[in-house]
Each structure stands twice: as structure tokens, then as C-alpha cells.
Write a protein that binds this DNA or RNA. Sequence first.
DNA 1: GCGAATGATTTTTG
DNA 2: CAAAAATCATTCGC
Length: 429
Amino acid sequence: MDEQPRLMHAHAAVGMSGHPGLSQHITDNTGATDGDGRKQDIGDILQQIMTITDQSLDEAQARKHALNCHRMKPALFNVLCEIKEKTVLSIRGAQEEESPDAQLMRLDNMLLAEGVSGPEKGGGSAAAAAAAAASAGVGADNSAEHSDYRAKLTQIRQIYHTELEKYEQACNEFTTHVMNLLREQSRTRPISPKEIERMVGIIHRKFSSIQMQLKQSTCEAVMILRSRFLDARRKRRNFNKQATEILNEYFYSHLSNPYPSEEAKEELAKKCSITVSQVSNWFGNKRIRYKKNIGKFQEEANMYAARTAVNAASVSAHGSQANSPSTPNSAGSAGSFNMSNSGDLFMSVQSLNGDSYQSSQVGANVQSQVDTLRHVISQTGGYSDGLAANQMYSPQGINANGGWQDPTTPSSVTSPTEGPGSVHSDTSN
DNA sequence: GCGAATGATTTTTG
DNA sequence: CAAAAATCATTCGC
């Protein structure tokens, strides 16, 4: 119970509010042990702190100035800075983040690829480049088709750039502000330049994370725009008539094996001014749709077969080595040639089929139809110049299951499977 | 406006 | 993996 009176004493001292020298007296008065002395020191400091509020501002300024002018001040400051540095560093050392960097790079690359964040500022050129890249090889209709797309892309670009600039400016402003503040405070607080640097780093990281969000949302916007405007399904255009004719001609003249090789596809693509994959699509669609309903395509098949026959006839008439059969440029040549002749040619083939052939009656029983046709084809194997005959509306390659045999083998028009001589002509069947 | 046609994409298959 | 089959999304003719 010795404590109580001393505590009371301390309180009393604080309450007494006063002179700096007072503690001295108290210490002297109690005349206590070492421990007691330290406690007394704390009381002393407390009291000093409490008295600060009572001091006038001028007095405080004067004290501050006195402190600043103290000869030991710089040394003390340095020591404090060092200690702080060590503590802060030890706290900070643990965390290191590299993951957002990769993502940021991905976003940057994408924006660059999309022409949003390109080096050039003139909106038109970048957008045009992007549009050209996006629609490479589609054909002649891009400029009008993608003007809307380009406008929207430019809009996104502008928003992106203004926002980016805004963020950058805000970042710089904030950074300089904080730096100034810290520099000023470093006169009264132990703040080392390194710490300021670190602070700037933190600020930059924060702002770059905001920037990343901006970039991400820009990317999303571009993606949505892309899918909306460049999705080929949405912007489907029918091929022009000439292209369709060329494709159909190839298809029906290779009906036994309508699988154009890569080279053939390339050539067709070039001729039709479409892409190779479009040719592939076309043939895929054509094969499946033809096979599904041969009857529906019979007329078309006949037409193209006749045309091809004309072409072949014209070729054979002009000399065997004049025109390569692989270039059925019939659109022009067939027109000039005698069209009725082709009709006769076809009619004669049709007549070989006897009474069974009628385009309207097909469909009911595809299986029997296929069989019949196959039979007819085998009978017409020896027909005239050969070239045209076995190419004519001849699904002989279609097997019982409705598929073309051996689709992997490259097409070869000029090598029919059946020998013309092997078939004896029993047209009565 | 409707349905067929058609080019493209997606899913299945061998 | 390429082709078939199924499906989607658009165009076109009526």
C-alpha cells in the first residue's frame, strides 16, 4: 500500500499544471529508489505532453525551431530514418506480386492487335488496318460492310485513350502531391527519400491496377463488337451467281467423288473470289444436301451435266490438247456453242434410263433410286466420248448407306472406275 | 411475314 | 483430323 500516496502525488503534480521544473522538486521530495525514479520520469513526460496544449503556438514554434537547430538533430534524424527503413523493409519484403504483369501484357497485346492501342493516333488509319486484317480475303464488300464496325472501334479507341490519359494525369498529379507532402514532412518527420520512392511505387501500382481494369473492359467491348459485327454467320452474304456456277460445275462434274483436293479448292477459291474454307464449307453443305435429297437436285445435276458435256464436246471437237479439261470455263464457251446439241446429248442419256426416270418421283425411295441410277450409269459407261457421260448426274459413287466411297482419294475425273468395254448393252433392262 | 435456300458453325463420328 | 450431320442465322423470293 505504498503505491497509493505516490500515485496520488503524481496526479497532484499533473493537476498542478505547471512549471517544467516542478518534477525536480517532486523527485527530490520522494527521494525514492531507481524504479521509482523511472516512474517519476514517465510522469514527467506525461506532464510535459499535457502542458503542450497550454502553450501558445508561438512558443511551440520556437521550440520546434530550437529543436531543428540543435546540432545533434541531423544525426538523430538519420538514425530514426534508418530504424524506420529497416522495420518497414522487413515488413514489406515478404510480399511480391508478378501475376498481374503477365495479364497486363496479354491485354496490351490484344489491344495492340485490335488496333485500339496502336502507336498511331489518327483514328482512321488504325481502324482501317484493323478492319482490313479482320476481313482479309473475304472479298470486295468490306469497306461498306465494316464502316459501322470501324466507327464503333474508333469510338472505343477514343474513349480508351481519353480515359487512359485521364488516369495518367490523375496519377501524376497525385504522385507529385504526395511527394511534395512527404518532402515537406520530412523536415519534421523521419522520412527518407527511399520511403518516398516506395510510396510513389505504391501509388503507381494502384493506378496501374485501375488502368488494367480499363484495359480489360476495353478488351471486352472490342470482343463484343467483333462478335456482333464480324461474326460471319450474322453477316452472311450469298455467293454471287458466277461463283455458285463454278462451284456447281465442279461438284456435278466430280459427282462420283466430290472431294476437291487442296489445290483444287485453292483454284476454286481463286476463281470464285472466296476463301478456301468457304469452298470447303460449300462442298460440305452441298454433299450433305445433295445426298439427303437427290431428287431435289436432279434438275440442277442434269443442267450442269449437260453443260459439262457441251464443254467436253467442244474440247474434243477443237482438239484433244487444246484445252485442259480441268478448267471448265463453260460460262462463256458453252453459250456460244450449240445449246440444243447439249439437250440432245442429255436426252439420249435420259432415254437410256427408259421409262423409270422422272425427277418428281424420286425421294420416296432413295435406295431404289440410287440402285437404278447406278445401273443406268453402268449401262452408259460406254457412252460416246466418255468424258462427259459418266460425269452426268451420276451418283454411282454413293453406296448403299448413302455415302461416297473412299472420300479420301483425290478426285480424278478422267479415270472412271468402270471400263467402257466391260458392259454389254442390254438397254432392255 | 413466311418458308425455302444457303453459308457458317458446332457437334458427332470414323 | 477431316468429313458428316445437326444446327444456327441470315438472305431471298413470294
